[in-house]
Amino acid sequence: MPRVTVLLKWLLIVTGTLLLLVVLFWRSLMGFVLHDLPFMGSSFDAKAWSTALKCTSDKDCIDKDMACVRGSMFRDLSRKHLTPGVPRSQVLALLGEPTLVTKDNCVDYELGYCSGFKIDGDYLRVCYDQGDKVSRVFHWQS
C-alpha cells in the first residue's frame, strides 16, 4: 500500500507542476503555436512558391489558401533570401509580382490563411529603402 501512495503522490506532483507551467506560460505558448509555428518549417522552394496560389476552381483556391504552403517558407525567406540590401529586381525574380504595392515603398505577397484560427489572411511584406534595396521584411495579418 505505501508504494501505491508514493506513486500517487508523485503523479499528483508531476501533474500539478505541468498544470502550473501551462497556466504560467499559456500566453507565450499559444502565441508560439498560433502565430510563430505556422511561419517556419519549410525551405524556400521557387516552384512551390509560384504554384502555391494558382488554382482551377473556388474550392481549389480555398484549399490552397488553407494549406499555407507559402507561409511555412517565411522564416527561411526572411533569414536567407530577403536580407537587408537585396535589390528589388532580385526579389521580383525570386517571388514574382507582388499581390499589393503600398504607398510606403513596400510590397505584399499573399501567404494564405496560416496563423491563429485561419480566419485572417497572412501576408509577407517587403519594404525597400531609397536605393530600392530590401530594408525590412515581416509578416502581417489582414
Rank of each mutant, 00 (worst) to 15 (best):
P2H: 12
R3A: 13
R3H: 09
T5C: 01
L8R: 11
L12E: 01
V14Y: 04
V14N: 00
T17L: 13
L18W: 07
L19N: 10
L21Y: 07
L21F: 12
F25M: 08
S28D: 15
S28Q: 14
S28C: 00
S28W: 05
S28L: 07
L29G: 14
L34S: 09
H35W: 05
L37C: 00
P38I: 14
P38A: 12
S43P: 00
S43T: 14
D45G: 04
S50N: 12
S50I: 04
A52M: 03
A52K: 03
A52E: 02
A52N: 04
K54Q: 11
C55I: 04
C55L: 00
S57V: 11
D58I: 09
D58Q: 06
C61Y: 05
K64F: 02
M66W: 03
A67I: 08
C68I: 12
C68V: 12
V69K: 07
V69E: 07
V69L: 03
R70Q: 05
G71D: 03
M73Y: 04
L77Q: 09
S78T: 13
R79E: 15
R79M: 11
R79P: 00
K80Q: 08
L82M: 10
L82S: 07
P84A: 13
G85N: 06
R88K: 15
Q90Y: 05
A93I: 06
A93W: 02
L94W: 07
L94P: 02
L95A: 10
G96R: 08
E97P: 01
E97Q: 05
P98F: 07
T102P: 00
K103I: 10
D104R: 12
N105I: 10
C106Y: 04
C106L: 08
Y109V: 10
G112C: 05
Y113A: 06
C114I: 15
S115R: 12
K118H: 14
D120N: 14
D120T: 14
D122H: 08
Y123H: 14
V126F: 02
C127Y: 09
C127F: 05
Y128V: 14
Y128I: 11
Y128D: 08
G131F: 10
G131I: 06
K133V: 08
K133D: 01
K133A: 12
R136I: 04
R136F: 03
H139K: 13
S142R: 09
